[in-house]
């Protein structure tokens, strides 16, 4: 699996919400694209990430 351009080997499919937690993302501050499709926040809990998937994650910081 590729996350923001970095290869992360997956032994088995994993739930997106678990992966985000493992990687330390704050779910209220991010947007996620999987294989070129935006993943709705409501679908984090039942989206499976497979080893061939490509994830792009943007994590916002405050200020504007």
């Amino acid at each position: 699996m590729k996350m923001n351009g970095v290869l992360i080997p997956l032994e088995r499919p994993v739930l997106l919400s678990e992966l985000l937690e493992q990687q330390g993302y704050e779910q209220m501050r991010i947007a996620v694209e999987k294989n070129g499709e935006i993943i709705p926040k409501s679908a984090y809990l039942d989206t499976l990430v497979q080893d061939e998937d490509v994830l792009e994650i943007v994590s916002f910081v405050g200020g504007g």
Partner: peptide, 18 residues
């Protein structure tokens, strides 16, 4: 998107892209 709080930034970006 020109908000201040990261949660609001994420909310707007997710809503529009979706």
């Amino acid at each position: 998107e020109a908000f201040d709080q990261p949660e609001n930034k994420a909310m707007l970006v997710n809503a529009l892209l979706e």
